[in-house]
């Protein structure tokens, strides 16, 4: 049961990156599951025989979201988000997928009270020994995060360009 729980967490976290048009297709979900299981095998091998990859802030290459995580976490910040926050860590980066359509009430009201949950996540990333944290905010929640984005420089964040999937 514990192993099944781990797989569920991994699959649910990774499924947050499924494109909407594929979420309802049985065949796509099967290939998604196979993909994750196969890649997790590679990830486990890498953990047994670790290869050091240089960290770079300039590109996505070293910390792609598409690489499976080494650790998966369900984070719960009930004062700020109603839903569980799905997270994963690779070697350097703590990936946090904020619940869609469910941002904190403070965010929704546009009150600059984003610091608390951000600080909590930064502290957690630090505790986990991560160099950086990537926060994935649903585009359909853009209105809710506009205040947050306006203050980005002030809070020391930067926007990461989307991956060139065609490339």
């Amino acid at each position: 049961n514990l192993v099944q729980l781990y797989w569920d967490i991994i699959l649910l976290t990774e499924s947050k990156f499924l494109l909407p048009q594929y979420r309802q297709q049985q065949q796509s979900l099967k290939s998604f599951q196979k993909y994750v299981v196969d890649k997790m095998g590679v990830t486990l091998n890498r953990m047994v025989k670790p290869v050091k990859v240089p960290y770079s802030r300039t590109g996505n290459l070293n910390t792609p979201w598409r690489q499976l995580g080494i650790k998966y976490l369900m984070v719960y910040l009930p004062l700020h988000f109603k839903d569980v926050i799905w997270c994963k860590c690779d070697q350097f980066c703590f990936h946090v997928i904020l619940p869609q359509n469910n941002a904190s009430s403070a965010l929704r009201r546009g009150i600059s009270n984003d610091k608390e949950w951000l600080l909590s996540l930064l502290e957690l990333g630090d505790k986990l020994g991560m160099q950086s944290i990537r926060i994935y905010i649903g585009r359909d929640d853009f209105n809710g995060v506009s205040t947050f984005l306006r203050n980005l420089n002030w809070i020391g964040g930067r926007l990461v360009p989307n991956e060139n999937r065609a490339g």
Partner: peptide, 16 residues
């Protein structure tokens, strides 16, 4: 692989 995408998200990065 092509059924995954980060188009759904705005991605912000912070140093810990």
């Amino acid at each position: 692989d092509l059924i995954f995408g980060d188009e759904n998200y705005i991605i912000l990065e912070f140093e810990c």
